[in-house]
């Protein structure tokens, strides 16, 4: 066992972080927000071609030397590390669906894909992110296990203002057409991978929330000292980290398990746990970050609101908390409990 990152994994992580800091720093983020909703840039996906060229979407595609569309042949372990970085940088767009379509449906480079699953009743309207910018829409049916693909133009939809300014949404009107079957792709697996990659985005975002809150708490002074010297503020920040790091460990371990061929039942429980904890870490972390910023946190220009709004978007993407909690509960099997004695023994 060695759960530390390998040198190659560290290189991947730092390389991507540096690329994103250079290309999608605070200025570019603000410019994207300012451009959003103006009508001019609604279809534009900032950074898409660069990320595609950097291999973000084709990390897990098998290598095929000499062929144009070969990937890097890496695993989910590398993919979650990369998605942590993209989540941290607040890069907008259908990142996860595009990765899945690149790996499983041969989506060509520089294109974007979407994904939608039929909504059970009582879950609100069926929304698709950036519909006009998509080349293809994946339709996983987790009941039959089948995945179908659909041309986005076949959907009737109307544009809505998304709560996250960088996640414009289209509300699907009427029934979703059947589309074409995508042979050889399992819907359950697709959904699980998408859930895990979304959890990785949340972990990255949660880490940014901690760093942003701590940075502000060190610099903002009240009562003659940095507010970060007050335990009330310190404990908020400590709790943010204490939610983020277990979630990070869970996300990475689930990815390692998936690459190592852990059985599906066990893996789905791990992924459900990873997503649930990552959602909590990101959503609560972003709220605490906003709280640490005080009145500034409530303003448009402080950027903190972008963290929270994006965390809400990811929380609603792929497996949501109630679904994950049910998977986890089901995983608490009654079999193989071993001895009854000895649990919870305390010591000083």
């Amino acid at each position: 066992m060695d759960f530390r990152l390998t040198d190659d994994q560290i290189a991947l992580q730092t390389g991507l972080r540096e690329l994103l800091e250079g290309r999608f720093g605070p200025e570019r983020l603000r410019a994207a927000v300012a451009g959003a909703g103006s009508g001019a840039d609604d279809d534009g996906l900032p950074l898409w071609s660069e990320l595609s060229d950097a291999g973000l979407f084709s990390l897990r595609k098998p290598e095929r030397s000499g062929q144009r569309e070969g990937g890097l042949g890496l695993g989910l372990a590398e993919a979650v590390l990369a998605f942590e970085e993209v989540g941290r940088a607040l890069v907008p767009g259908p990142l996860v669906a595009t990765e899945l379509a690149t790996v499983h449906a041969s989506l060509p480079p520089h294109r974007a894909a979407g994904l939608c699953r039929r909504q059970p009743a009582g879950r609100g309207p069926l929304l698709v992110e950036r519909l006009p910018a998509l080349a293809v829409l994946l339709l996983p049916d987790t009941l039959t296990g089948e995945v179908r693909s659909l041309s986005p133009s076949a959907l009737r939809a109307r544009g809505r203002r998304g709560v996250d300014p960088l996640t414009p949404l289209w509300e699907v009107q009427g029934p979703v057409p059947d589309g074409e079957p995508l042979p050889g792709v399992d819907a359950g697996r697709l959904w699980a991978e998408g859930t895990l990659l979304t959890a990785a985005l949340q972990v990255g975002l949660a880490g940014r929330a901690v760093a942003t809150a701590v940075g502000y708490a060190k610099q903002r002074e009240q009562f003659g000292q940095p507010i970060g010297a007050f335990q009330a503020v310190q404990h908020l920040c400590a709790d943010m980290l204490a939610r983020t790091e277990p979630a990070r460990a869970a996300v990475r371990a689930a990815a390692v398990g998936a690459d190592a061929g852990v059985p599906t039942a066990e893996l789905s429980v791990e992924i459900a746990g990873a997503k649930l904890l990552a959602d909590q870490a990101a959503v609560r972390g972003a709220r605490d970050c906003l709280q640490v910023h005080g009145g500034m946190g409530f303003t448009w220009e402080a950027d903190v609101h972008l963290l929270l709004k994006r965390a809400w978007v990811y929380e609603g993407s792929f497996a949501r908390t109630p679904e994950s909690a049910e998977v986890l509960a089901e995983g608490l099997s009654v079999a193989g409990l071993g001895h009854g004695a000895g649990h919870g023994v305390g010591h000083l």
């Binding site: 909690a325 986890l328 608490l332």
Partner: peptide, 26 residues
């Protein structure tokens, strides 16, 4: 039932955190 599921996620993640801490120490 869901609270039990959530707690299961927390203990599972804590075990991973132990493995991580031990790996770093190693």
């Amino acid at each position: 039932r869901r609270s039990l599921g959530v707690l299961s996620a927390r203990f599972g993640a804590l075990w991973r955190l132990v493995q991580w801490n031990v790996s770093e120490a190693q």
